[in-house]
């Protein structure tokens, strides 16, 4: 026996109208969603286009190999990109092992107790601390208390602290995705905990971890505020000591103690000047910075994409 609800024509019409109204609501909101999306995307496109339009003509070999100058047409970003490269080197060298270690501990070792909870809450809080506060931390402790001065080493350290939460969180996510069967079989053939971690867990989590480190570095490369706060100079017309030397012992760590500037600071400095010619230089620096961060993120997304495909098959 079927349930037949008796319906008059007026009721039929009313329910059809209701259905139409519902459908209309959906269409309207879908359109609103698309409009918002297009609006935001076009604003961001405007940002990129404006920057590229202003700056692309200024990027040439001279711009990359000249030091900053009082005359806009002769100024370049040589010291800035060398500084950025060296600072990133220090940051990666510090943030990767510390962040991976902390992530590994929290995911695999941490016992369920109050102290582990504190570390966990603390990491997510650190992720929300404004970057300029890290700058104040470095200014107070590294620069003055430890007397290290505004050097490349301090710049790298403060950026490493800044991206530590990013590396920790992505390491944990990558490790969580490692199937537990892998760990159990490794224990089954007699590995101890560290052997399981080092030979099985970390290698399987490698793509995710590398992605996290790259995303962290791409954030660090654009950071300006903490580097300004530690007192990095804006006008540097010399290069730090080269890390690689022609004479034994071939490597040299004097560059760590060198004053420096980085690309975002150079850009900020040029924006703050009134002459429009310097604004062109700022735009050119911005294009370079944008290209660097987008390239790094592109690599990270590519690795993640390949990882996802590998997991599917």
């Amino acid at each position: 026996m079927s349930i037949d609800v008796p319906m008059g024509t007026s009721e039929r019409a009313a329910s059809a109208a209701l259905v139409r109204k519902m459908r209309r609501q959906d269409v309207i909101f879908a359109v609103v969603g698309v409009i918002v999306l297009v609006l935001v995307m076009s604003l961001l496109m405007a940002l990129v286009i404006d920057l590229v339009h202003d700056g692309i003509g200024r990027i040439n070999y001279d711009f990359l190999t000249h030091f900053p100058s009082r005359r806009a047409a002769r100024a370049g970003v040589f010291s800035a990109w060398v500084g950025t490269t060296l600072v990133m080197f220090v940051t990666a060298f510090l943030a990767a092992p510390l962040g991976i270690g902390a992530g590994l501990y929290l995911e695999e070792y941490a016992p369920k107790n109050i102290f582990s909870d504190i570390i966990e809450i603390n990491v997510s809080n650190l992720a929300g601390v404004p970057s300029i506060i890290y700058g104040l931390l470095a200014l107070g402790i590294f620069v003055y208390m430890l007397g290290m001065g505004p050097t490349i080493l301090v710049g790298g350290m403060v950026l490493a602290l800044l991206i530590l939460p990013i590396v920790i969180v992505s390491t944990r996510e990558a490790i969580r995705a490692v199937p537990s069967g892998l760990r159990e079989s490794a224990y089954g053939v007699g590995c101890n905990k560290w052997q399981v971690m080092w030979n099985y867990v970390l290698p399987s989590a490698r793509p995710g971890i590398i992605t996290g480190v790259i995303v962290g570095l791409s954030r660090a490369i654009g950071e300006t505020a903490p580097i300004i706060t530690i007192g990095a100079l804006t006008f540097i017309a010399f290069l730090p000591e080269s890390p690689v030397q022609g004479t034994p012992p071939f490597v040299n760590f004097d560059w760590l103690q060198s004053p420096f500037t980085v690309m975002p600071i150079q850009m900020f400095n040029w924006i703050s000047r009134p002459q429009p010619a310097f604004h062109v230089n700022a735009a050119a620096t911005g294009v370079l910075l944008l290209a660097m961060t987008l390239a790094m993120n592109g690599v990270a997304i590519f690795i993640r994409y390949r990882l996802r495909r590998a997991l599917k098959t």
Binding site: L44, A46, L47, D50, L51, D54, V215, S218, R219, I221, G222, E223, T224, A225, P264, M267, F268, I271, H279, A282, A283, G286, L289, L290, T293, L294, M296, N297
Partner: peptide
């Protein structure tokens, strides 16, 4: 991941 200084440029000069 767009550097904030780039957003600053956009705000002030565009």
């Amino acid at each position: 991941a767009v550097p904030t200084v780039v957003f600053g440029y956009f705000a002030l000069l565009f």
